[in-house]
């Protein structure tokens, strides 16, 4: 783990990765495992409502998962984790002054950004794998009858969604070096994207925003019921890659703060 910047990055994050993992397991079990008893107690019987429709919630297994783990709490947590890691990748270490020492070694700026991006990708992949295992287990326990392939597709989309915002944070950090600004702007973009996906379609004047939201690329065709959204997944891969390229370009040309 001490042999490369990527390895060191993950090593430095081992505790936080463990805590996030425990969080994902706990949340998934709390939401998903008691699904049957929620249904039996009638807790999930909702009236027709624009809100429920907007967040895609209904009491079918797919609707319940879509409205909770995949549409709300999962994105919230995984985007928070990815944003934290993305902001720390450059801006955080720069504010701590540790980038100075690294970049005084024979390590190019591009290589540093790319290894840090790799560390971000690995961290999100790991948390995605934990979430996947928790969701697969919990849906078995609750006998929800959703095929593993669909769950896999949904978790993949969710991880790529989080990675997109992590890459936004990485790129903003590479350009500005200011962690507070990075976290604030990334969080604002994530909220705006969620709103654009969830509520913009109900307002004619804002409907054009929906296809621009990464949430749409991920959940527009509900991966738990619909066909795989090839365009959406492509965008969710292409945008983080493009952001990494921008991060390298921005980081190459500026001063490193003390």
């Amino acid at each position: 783990m001490l042999r490369s910047v990527l390895g060191k990055t993950l090593r430095d994050q081992r505790r936080s990765l463990l805590f996030w993992s425990l969080g994902f397991v706990a949340v998934t079990l709390i939401y998903v495992a008691p699904y049957r008893s929620f249904v039996e107690q009638g807790l999930l019987e909702t009236r027709e409502s624009a809100i429920y429709e907007a967040i895609g919630f209904d009491q079918t297994p797919a609707g319940y998962l879509r409205g909770t783990v995949f549409g709300l709490i999962g994105p919230l947590l995984l985007i928070m984790a990815a944003t934290t890691y993305g902001a720390r990748a450059i801006a955080g270490d720069e504010e701590d002054g540790t980038l100075d020492l690294l970049l005084a070694h024979p390590l190019s700026r591009a290589r540093l950004v790319l290894e840090r991006a790799g560390g971000l990708g690995a961290a999100v992949a790991l948390l995605g794998a934990v979430l996947w295992a928790a969701v697969v287990t919990a849906t078995r326990v609750a006998d929800m009858g959703i095929p593993v392939a669909r769950l896999t597709l949904a978790v993949l989309g969710l991880a790529l969604l989080a990675l997109t915002f992590g890459a936004v944070a990485l790129a903003l950090g590479a350009a500005t070096g200011r962690r507070g600004l990075v976290v604030g702007v990334t969080a604002a973009l994530a909220v705006a994207s969620y709103v654009a996906f969830t509520f913009a379609p109900q307002v004619d004047a804002l409907a054009f925003l929906e296809p621009l939201s990464p949430f749409t690329w991920y959940l527009g065709d509900n991966p738990l019921v619909g066909p795989p959204d090839a365009l959406g997944l492509t965008l969710l891969v292409a945008v983080p890659l493009a952001l990494c390229a921008l991060a390298v370009a921005a980081f190459e040309r500026r001063d490193i703060a003390v």
Binding site: L2, R3, S4, V5, K8, R11, D12, D96, G97, T98, D100, L101, L102, A104, H105, P106, L107
Partner: peptide
């Protein structure tokens, strides 16, 4: 550097091993 920035739980030896690998 004028003031070596340090963070985290790593030991001095770990940091020196890591920096050595960068070289």
């Amino acid at each position: 550097p004028g003031d070596l920035p340090v963070r985290g739980r790593d030991s001095a030896g770990d940091l020196l091993t890591f920096l050595g690998h960068l070289r």
